[in-house]
């Protein structure tokens, strides 16, 4: 396992991480110091109140969540976290909630020169024209772009996203599910260990396409063994999301475990 992992190879701005584990559980900062990078909570230009309650529906072995991209909005986020980002030893990757190209271009321009920010992660859903949006954001910023694709259609659009200028592909967003609640349909994204085999297959298949963009895996990781499975399937880095809600500090522990494995004498 390499000590330095480049997520934007051959691009004018480098995005190098020193550990394959990326904290992607939300929030804007982390106390972990040994992880590769932090991906922020998906953020929008303006405050978003989010979806009406309930936003969380539990199912056996996992949870369906629909936050509606609740977040404080970029102005407040920047005001509250700029100093911490400037001092961060790891790159901060600002996630853009799935709002589409027009808002993303505006946000990208505002983020371009904020110290500490190493890249942006665009969150797609199947309703967005991913390639067109990536081209628009690419034209607006030199920051490395990570395109986080929906597991539902990641295989179909991965090649177009790489060709459009995404520096790395994140495979992928939590799969969308449904539950009947009091006779009504309720949609949310599934966070659970059971997401791992779905994401693992998608990563392996997209890795087989030999695209000109490194792959970052995301989905259901709860252990170093899970992370190693993604790395073996072709990912160069792994995002940790809901596991951190259950076991705070797990991203740092997995990062340490992978690091110690790297340092073992062969």
């Amino acid at each position: 396992m390499p000590h330095q992992i480049e997520l934007a190879p051959s691009w004018k701005r480098s995005l190098t991480i020193s550990n394959p584990i990326i904290f992607a559980a939300g929030g804007y900062t982390t106390e972990a110091t040994n992880i590769g990078a932090l991906v922020t909570l998906p953020t929008t230009l303006h405050t978003r109140v989010g979806a009406p309650m309930p936003r969380v529906i539990e199912i056996p072995g996992g949870v369906l969540m629909r936050t509606g991209a609740a977040n404080p909005g970029w102005t407040r986020v920047l005001r509250e976290h700029r100093r911490a980002w400037e001092q961060s030893q790891m790159p901060i990757i600002v996630a853009f909630a799935a709002q589409g190209a027009r808002e993303w271009v505006t946000l990208a321009a505002q983020i371009e020169n904020v110290a500490g920010i190493g890249g942006i992660e665009l969150h797609f859903n199947p309703a967005l024209d991913a390639a067109e949006a990536i081209r628009a954001v690419r034209a607006a910023t030199e920051l490395p772009i990570l395109a986080k694709l929906d597991l539902d259609n990641a295989r179909e659009i991965a090649a177009d996203c790489a060709a459009a200028g995404a520096n790395a592909l994140v495979i992928g967003r939590a799969p969308r599910g449904m539950k009947i609640v009091d006779g009504k349909t309720w949609y949310g994204r599934l966070y659970a260990p059971s997401v791992l085999p779905l994401a693992l297959r998608a990563v392996a298949e997209i890795a087989g396409m030999k695209l000109d963009a490194p792959l970052v895996a995301c989905g259901g990781v709860h252990s170093a063994e899970d992370a190693r499975a993604f790395l073996a399937a072709g990912a160069c880095a792994v995002e940790i999301d809901s596991a951190e809600w259950i076991e705070p500090g797990i991203a740092a522990r997995i990062a340490a475990e992978l690091e110690s494995q790297t340092n073992e004498p062969r």
């Binding site: 909570l41 109140v49 309930p54 936050t67 609740a70």
Partner: peptide
């Protein structure tokens, strides 16, 4: 009394709109 998956301000599932913002 909203579901609070992380308890630590990470996931924003328990975000509440107030007159002082989220």
């Amino acid at each position: 009394d909203a579901p609070m998956p992380c308890g630590d301000g990470l996931c924003y599932a328990c975000a509440v709109e107030t007159t002082r913002g989220i």
